[in-house]
Design a protein around this nucleic acid. Sequence first.
DNA 1: GCAAACCTTGACATCACTGTAACGTTGCCT
DNA 2: AGGCAACGTTACAGTGATGTCAAGGTTTGC
Lengths: 130, 130
Amino acid sequence: MKIGELAKRTEVPTRMLRYYEEQGLITPQRQQNGYREYDEYLVDRVKKIRGLLDSGIPTRIIGDMLPCLNQPQEIVVADPDPELRELLVRERDRMAERMALLEHHCHALTQYIAAMDRSIDATTVSRRPR
Amino acid sequence: MKIGELAKRTEVPTRMLRYYEEQGLITPQRQQNGYREYDEYLVDRVKKIRGLLDSGIPTRIIGDMLPCLNQPQEIVVADPDPELRELLVRERDRMAERMALLEHHCHALTQYIAAMDRSIDATTVSRRPR
DNA sequence: GCAAACCTTGACATCACTGTAACGTTGCCT
DNA sequence: AGGCAACGTTACAGTGATGTCAAGGTTTGC
């Protein structure tokens, strides 16, 4: 498929698809006219890349991780590089930290919003004609 | 306290403290010699800023949110600006989304690491002298 | 009084986008 | 066949948060 279709299916703008290619995360074929030609399996791959970037993992590291996350179901690791394992553990722990933080701020915001709503309520009530 | 001490206590590099000031998130006093002088309460504030930035909130929006999150215990909202409420809800929802994503990838990574460990185990066993 | 440690501003670099300009290709309609 | 919209291409510039470094002033400790 061409870049536009992939963009639609992954909800990742074409601009970024080209960027990921520049960063070596995907390497589509080329048609004779120079258009990029994307294989089906890249749909999943792009979604994965987005997820990882959203989790704060830099492209450089994503490049190392992608082959790992490609494993379909039964995960069998060919070459259990201990250095890569270290990297993955570190990143996972950082993810966990970020989650905890997010949770905290999420909660704080929710409370504040609730307080705002109560305040709006009160204002309405006090303004009610008697 | 001076910028170095604040940096140490918050684990935020001095570069960033100056940047946050540039963005209007903190406004320290100045000593006669031009050195920045930070009040105690800024320690918490800076930590909050970091947390929010780590959650993916841009400084522009943090500026609007900070007064809200400052509320000590009993949250009372003076001026319940509905536009601000909208903003907060949007950001909170985005936070929730990001949390879900993080959780998913965290889980995937954990599984992969476990698979690596099993693989290492197997290798070790198969290599064990009989 | 001198060096190390700290502070100042300013400039340039990086990373992940994001926008836009300038231009080529394809598909469709009349 | 002409024309035009939709789609593709590269290339360069800008942004936001951050890193790094240079050149210089201030403080502190020996």
